[in-house]
Write a protein that binds this DNA or RNA. Sequence first.
DNA 1: GTAACTGCAAATCCTTTGCTATGGA
DNA 2: TCCATAGCAAAGGATTTGCAGTTAC
Lengths: 128, 128
Amino acid sequence: MKYSKQREIILQIVQNSMDHPTADKIYEKARMELPNISLGTVYRNLNQLAEAGTIRKISTGTSDRFDKTLKDHCHFHCTKCEKIIDLPVVYVAQLKEDLMRKEGHKIEYEEILFTGICKECLEERKED
Amino acid sequence: MKYSKQREIILQIVQNSMDHPTADKIYEKARMELPNISLGTVYRNLNQLAEAGTIRKISTGTSDRFDKTLKDHCHFHCTKCEKIIDLPVVYVAQLKEDLMRKEGHKIEYEEILFTGICKECLEERKED
DNA sequence: GTAACTGCAAATCCTTTGCTATGGA
DNA sequence: TCCATAGCAAAGGATTTGCAGTTAC
Protein backbone atom coordinates (compact mmCIF):
# COMPACT_ATOMS: atom_id res chain seq x y z
CA MET A 1 0.00 0.00 0.00
CA LYS A 2 1.44 3.30 -1.10
CA TYR A 3 1.56 6.12 1.40
CA SER A 4 -0.95 8.93 1.21
CA LYS A 5 -1.60 11.85 3.50
CA GLN A 6 -5.33 11.16 3.21
CA ARG A 7 -5.02 7.59 4.43
CA GLU A 8 -2.75 8.62 7.27
CA ILE A 9 -5.26 11.15 8.53
CA ILE A 10 -8.20 8.80 8.16
CA LEU A 11 -6.37 6.15 10.12
CA GLN A 12 -5.44 8.66 12.82
CA ILE A 13 -9.05 9.75 13.15
CA VAL A 14 -10.27 6.19 13.60
CA GLN A 15 -7.49 5.39 16.02
CA ASN A 16 -8.14 8.48 18.10
CA SER A 17 -11.90 8.04 18.19
CA MET A 18 -13.59 6.59 21.19
CA ASP A 19 -17.04 6.65 19.65
CA HIS A 20 -16.94 4.26 16.68
CA PRO A 21 -17.67 6.91 14.05
CA THR A 22 -19.57 6.51 10.79
CA ALA A 23 -17.85 7.12 7.44
CA ASP A 24 -19.55 10.48 7.31
CA LYS A 25 -18.29 11.57 10.72
CA ILE A 26 -14.80 10.55 9.68
CA TYR A 27 -15.18 12.59 6.53
CA GLU A 28 -16.21 15.65 8.56
CA LYS A 29 -13.19 15.33 10.81
CA ALA A 30 -10.84 14.69 7.91
CA ARG A 31 -11.98 17.88 6.22
CA MET A 32 -10.71 19.88 9.16
CA GLU A 33 -7.21 18.77 8.23
CA LEU A 34 -7.64 18.37 4.49
CA PRO A 35 -10.49 20.60 3.31
CA ASN A 36 -10.42 19.14 -0.20
CA ILE A 37 -10.64 15.50 0.73
CA SER A 38 -13.58 13.75 -0.89
CA LEU A 39 -16.07 11.37 0.62
CA GLY A 40 -15.12 8.79 -2.01
CA THR A 41 -11.56 8.83 -0.77
CA VAL A 42 -12.73 8.35 2.79
CA TYR A 43 -14.77 5.32 1.82
CA ARG A 44 -12.00 3.88 -0.30
CA ASN A 45 -9.49 4.21 2.50
CA LEU A 46 -11.79 2.91 5.20
CA ASN A 47 -12.46 -0.17 3.13
CA GLN A 48 -8.79 -0.65 2.39
CA LEU A 49 -7.84 -0.31 6.02
CA ALA A 50 -10.62 -2.65 7.08
CA GLU A 51 -9.58 -5.20 4.48
CA ALA A 52 -5.98 -4.96 5.62
CA GLY A 53 -7.19 -5.60 9.15
CA THR A 54 -5.89 -2.31 10.47
CA ILE A 55 -9.33 -1.11 11.43
CA ARG A 56 -12.70 -2.76 11.63
CA LYS A 57 -16.21 -2.27 10.29
CA ILE A 58 -19.17 -2.77 12.62
CA SER A 59 -22.70 -3.11 11.24
CA THR A 60 -25.37 -1.97 13.65
CA GLY A 61 -28.24 -2.44 11.24
CA THR A 62 -28.86 1.29 10.98
CA SER A 63 -25.37 2.29 9.88
CA ASP A 64 -21.81 1.10 9.50
CA ARG A 65 -19.37 2.21 12.14
CA PHE A 66 -15.61 2.03 12.23
CA ASP A 67 -13.53 0.86 15.10
CA LYS A 68 -9.85 1.02 15.85
CA THR A 69 -9.54 -1.98 18.11
CA LEU A 70 -8.99 -5.38 16.70
CA LYS A 71 -9.27 -7.07 20.02
CA ASP A 72 -12.49 -5.65 21.43
CA HIS A 73 -15.18 -7.11 19.27
CA CYS A 74 -17.93 -7.11 21.79
CA HIS A 75 -20.11 -4.04 21.71
CA PHE A 76 -23.12 -2.67 23.45
CA HIS A 77 -25.25 -0.26 21.48
CA CYS A 78 -27.47 2.02 23.56
CA THR A 79 -30.63 2.96 21.71
CA LYS A 80 -31.24 5.91 24.00
CA CYS A 81 -27.96 7.82 23.78
CA GLU A 82 -26.81 6.01 20.59
CA LYS A 83 -23.35 5.36 21.94
CA ILE A 84 -21.45 2.15 21.32
CA ILE A 85 -19.56 0.79 24.28
CA ASP A 86 -16.73 -1.70 24.06
CA LEU A 87 -17.29 -4.65 26.31
CA PRO A 88 -14.59 -6.66 28.02
CA VAL A 89 -13.18 -9.30 25.72
CA VAL A 90 -13.00 -11.77 28.52
CA TYR A 91 -16.76 -12.26 28.46
CA VAL A 92 -16.74 -13.57 24.95
CA ALA A 93 -13.84 -15.97 25.34
CA GLN A 94 -15.87 -18.86 26.68
CA LEU A 95 -18.51 -18.50 24.01
CA LYS A 96 -15.91 -18.58 21.27
CA GLU A 97 -14.20 -21.54 22.85
CA ASP A 98 -17.46 -23.52 22.92
CA LEU A 99 -18.20 -22.76 19.29
CA MET A 100 -14.83 -23.94 18.15
CA ARG A 101 -14.51 -27.00 20.38
CA LYS A 102 -18.08 -28.20 20.52
CA GLU A 103 -19.34 -27.14 17.10
CA GLY A 104 -16.12 -27.55 15.17
CA HIS A 105 -16.18 -24.31 13.17
CA LYS A 106 -13.19 -22.12 12.53
CA ILE A 107 -13.86 -18.59 13.71
CA GLU A 108 -12.01 -15.87 11.85
CA TYR A 109 -14.08 -12.90 12.83
CA GLU A 110 -16.62 -12.14 15.48
CA GLU A 111 -19.26 -9.49 15.62
CA ILE A 112 -21.14 -9.32 18.85
CA LEU A 113 -23.58 -6.55 19.36
CA PHE A 114 -25.93 -6.18 22.25
CA THR A 115 -28.56 -3.50 22.01
CA GLY A 116 -30.52 -1.98 24.85
CA ILE A 117 -30.24 0.75 27.44
CA CYS A 118 -26.85 1.38 28.97
CA LYS A 119 -26.22 1.66 32.68
CA GLU A 120 -25.93 5.46 32.55
CA CYS A 121 -29.21 5.92 30.72
CA LEU A 122 -30.92 3.51 33.08
CA GLU A 123 -29.77 5.61 36.01
CA GLU A 124 -31.00 8.81 34.38
CA ARG A 125 -34.34 7.21 33.74
CA LYS A 126 -34.75 6.51 37.45
CA GLU A 127 -34.56 10.24 38.08
CA ASP A 128 -37.44 10.95 35.68
CA MET B 1 -52.56 -5.41 12.18
CA LYS B 2 -55.04 -5.99 9.40
CA TYR B 3 -54.77 -9.22 7.46
CA SER B 4 -53.29 -9.25 4.00
CA LYS B 5 -52.52 -12.11 1.66
CA GLN B 6 -49.16 -10.51 0.89
CA ARG B 7 -48.09 -10.42 4.51
CA GLU B 8 -49.23 -13.98 5.07
CA ILE B 9 -47.11 -15.23 2.19
CA ILE B 10 -44.08 -13.18 3.20
CA LEU B 11 -44.29 -14.54 6.72
CA GLN B 12 -44.66 -18.08 5.42
CA ILE B 13 -41.59 -17.68 3.25
CA VAL B 14 -39.47 -16.47 6.15
CA GLN B 15 -40.79 -19.16 8.45
CA ASN B 16 -40.13 -21.89 5.93
CA SER B 17 -36.65 -20.69 5.04
CA MET B 18 -33.63 -22.34 6.51
CA ASP B 19 -31.20 -19.97 4.87
CA HIS B 20 -31.91 -16.52 6.35
CA PRO B 21 -32.89 -14.92 3.05
CA THR B 22 -32.39 -11.31 1.96
CA ALA B 23 -35.37 -9.07 1.18
CA ASP B 24 -34.72 -9.62 -2.48
CA LYS B 25 -34.76 -13.40 -2.20
CA ILE B 26 -38.03 -13.17 -0.30
CA TYR B 27 -39.42 -10.96 -3.06
CA GLU B 28 -38.43 -13.52 -5.69
CA LYS B 29 -40.15 -16.33 -3.80
CA ALA B 30 -43.23 -14.23 -3.10
CA ARG B 31 -43.64 -13.50 -6.81
CA MET B 32 -44.08 -17.18 -7.46
CA GLU B 33 -47.29 -17.03 -5.47
CA LEU B 34 -48.31 -13.45 -6.15
CA PRO B 35 -46.77 -12.30 -9.45
CA ASN B 36 -47.91 -8.70 -8.92
CA ILE B 37 -46.46 -8.20 -5.48
CA SER B 38 -44.09 -5.26 -5.32
CA LEU B 39 -40.69 -5.01 -3.68
CA GLY B 40 -41.94 -2.07 -1.63
CA THR B 41 -44.64 -4.26 -0.12
CA VAL B 42 -42.07 -6.89 0.73
CA TYR B 43 -39.91 -4.35 2.55
CA ARG B 44 -42.87 -2.81 4.33
CA ASN B 45 -44.07 -6.16 5.56
CA LEU B 46 -40.66 -7.42 6.56
CA ASN B 47 -40.14 -4.30 8.62
CA GLN B 48 -43.56 -4.57 10.17
CA LEU B 49 -43.06 -8.20 11.06
CA ALA B 50 -39.62 -7.48 12.47
CA GLU B 51 -40.96 -4.59 14.51
CA ALA B 52 -43.77 -6.75 15.82
CA GLY B 53 -41.17 -9.30 16.85
CA THR B 54 -42.58 -12.02 14.62
CA ILE B 55 -39.42 -12.24 12.57
CA ARG B 56 -35.97 -10.81 12.95
CA LYS B 57 -33.49 -8.75 10.95
CA ILE B 58 -29.84 -9.77 10.95
CA SER B 59 -27.15 -7.42 9.65
CA THR B 60 -24.15 -9.25 8.24
CA GLY B 61 -22.38 -6.14 7.01
CA THR B 62 -22.88 -7.04 3.38
CA SER B 63 -26.66 -7.31 3.47
CA ASP B 64 -29.66 -7.62 5.74
CA ARG B 65 -31.03 -11.08 6.25
CA PHE B 66 -34.30 -12.19 7.76
CA ASP B 67 -34.76 -14.93 10.25
CA LYS B 68 -37.78 -16.73 11.57
CA THR B 69 -36.50 -17.70 14.98
CA LEU B 70 -36.75 -15.34 17.87
CA LYS B 71 -34.82 -17.55 20.24
CA ASP B 72 -31.74 -18.38 18.23
CA HIS B 73 -29.83 -15.16 18.08
CA CYS B 74 -26.43 -16.59 17.71
CA HIS B 75 -25.28 -17.12 14.16
CA PHE B 76 -22.28 -18.43 12.35
CA HIS B 77 -21.69 -17.07 8.87
CA CYS B 78 -19.50 -19.25 6.66
CA THR B 79 -17.57 -17.19 4.14
CA LYS B 80 -16.92 -20.21 1.97
CA CYS B 81 -20.42 -21.58 1.40
CA GLU B 82 -22.17 -18.32 2.48
CA LYS B 83 -24.61 -20.13 4.71
CA ILE B 84 -25.74 -18.82 8.06
CA ILE B 85 -26.01 -21.40 10.79
CA ASP B 86 -28.03 -20.96 13.97
CA LEU B 87 -25.99 -21.68 17.03
CA PRO B 88 -27.27 -23.08 20.29
CA VAL B 89 -28.70 -20.38 22.51
CA VAL B 90 -27.21 -21.94 25.56
CA TYR B 91 -23.73 -20.74 24.61
CA VAL B 92 -24.71 -17.12 24.79
CA ALA B 93 -26.56 -17.27 28.08
CA GLN B 94 -23.51 -16.82 30.27
CA LEU B 95 -22.23 -13.92 28.22
CA LYS B 96 -25.54 -12.12 28.48
CA GLU B 97 -25.73 -12.79 32.16
CA ASP B 98 -22.30 -11.26 32.74
CA LEU B 99 -23.15 -8.16 30.74
CA MET B 100 -26.29 -7.52 32.69
CA ARG B 101 -24.99 -8.37 36.16
CA LYS B 102 -21.44 -7.11 35.95
CA GLU B 103 -21.85 -4.19 33.55
CA GLY B 104 -25.33 -3.13 34.58
CA HIS B 105 -26.82 -2.59 31.10
CA LYS B 106 -30.29 -3.64 30.07
CA ILE B 107 -30.14 -5.91 27.04
CA GLU B 108 -33.15 -5.81 24.79
CA TYR B 109 -31.70 -7.34 21.69
CA GLU B 110 -28.64 -9.34 20.86
CA GLU B 111 -26.89 -9.82 17.58
CA ILE B 112 -24.09 -12.27 17.67
CA LEU B 113 -22.40 -13.19 14.46
CA PHE B 114 -19.33 -15.28 14.10
CA THR B 115 -17.73 -15.47 10.71
CA GLY B 116 -15.31 -18.07 9.47
CA ILE B 117 -15.29 -21.51 7.91
CA CYS B 118 -17.92 -23.97 9.02
CA LYS B 119 -17.20 -27.51 10.06
CA GLU B 120 -18.46 -28.96 6.78
CA CYS B 121 -16.29 -26.68 4.66
CA LEU B 122 -13.30 -27.40 6.85
CA GLU B 123 -13.78 -31.10 6.25
CA GLU B 124 -14.07 -30.62 2.50
CA ARG B 125 -10.90 -28.60 2.53
CA LYS B 126 -9.03 -31.53 4.07
CA GLU B 127 -9.93 -33.63 1.04
CA ASP B 128 -8.42 -31.10 -1.39
C1' DG C 1 8.02 6.40 -15.51
C1' DT C 2 4.32 4.13 -13.69
C1' DA C 3 1.18 2.30 -10.70
C1' DA C 4 -1.48 3.72 -6.95
C1' DC C 5 -3.62 7.44 -5.46
C1' DT C 6 -6.76 11.67 -5.46
C1' DG C 7 -11.12 14.70 -6.26
C1' DC C 8 -15.18 15.03 -8.54
C1' DA C 9 -19.37 13.55 -10.25
C1' DA C 10 -22.19 10.12 -11.95
C1' DA C 11 -23.81 5.62 -11.16
C1' DT C 12 -25.43 1.95 -8.37
C1' DC C 13 -27.53 -0.41 -4.82
C1' DC C 14 -30.76 -1.03 -1.30
C1' DT C 15 -34.50 0.73 1.03
C1' DT C 16 -38.12 4.03 1.94
C1' DT C 17 -41.84 7.04 0.72
C1' DG C 18 -45.80 9.52 -1.71
C1' DC C 19 -49.54 8.65 -4.32
C1' DT C 20 -53.95 6.74 -5.66
C1' DA C 21 -56.58 2.59 -5.66
C1' DT C 22 -58.18 -1.51 -3.27
C1' DG C 23 -59.78 -4.59 0.26
C1' DG C 24 -60.56 -6.26 5.09
C1' DA C 25 -63.28 -5.39 9.44
C1' DT D 1 -67.82 3.23 5.53
C1' DC D 2 -63.09 3.80 6.83
C1' DC D 3 -58.46 2.93 7.67
C1' DA D 4 -54.68 -0.19 6.72
C1' DT D 5 -52.52 -1.97 2.96
C1' DA D 6 -51.35 -2.64 -1.96
C1' DG D 7 -48.81 -1.52 -6.33
C1' DC D 8 -46.17 1.59 -8.76
C1' DA D 9 -42.75 4.75 -9.40
C1' DA D 10 -39.99 8.27 -7.77
C1' DA D 11 -37.01 9.76 -4.07
C1' DG D 12 -33.55 8.96 -0.70
C1' DG D 13 -29.29 7.75 1.47
C1' DA D 14 -25.21 5.37 1.66
C1' DT D 15 -21.56 3.57 -0.87
C1' DT D 16 -19.04 2.55 -5.11
C1' DT D 17 -17.09 3.52 -9.50
C1' DG D 18 -15.15 5.82 -13.83
C1' DC D 19 -12.28 9.18 -15.23
C1' DA D 20 -8.62 12.45 -15.73
C1' DG D 21 -5.17 14.53 -13.18
C1' DT D 22 -1.57 13.96 -9.39
C1' DT D 23 1.86 11.89 -6.34
C1' DA D 24 4.85 8.44 -4.07
C1' DC D 25 8.46 5.39 -4.95
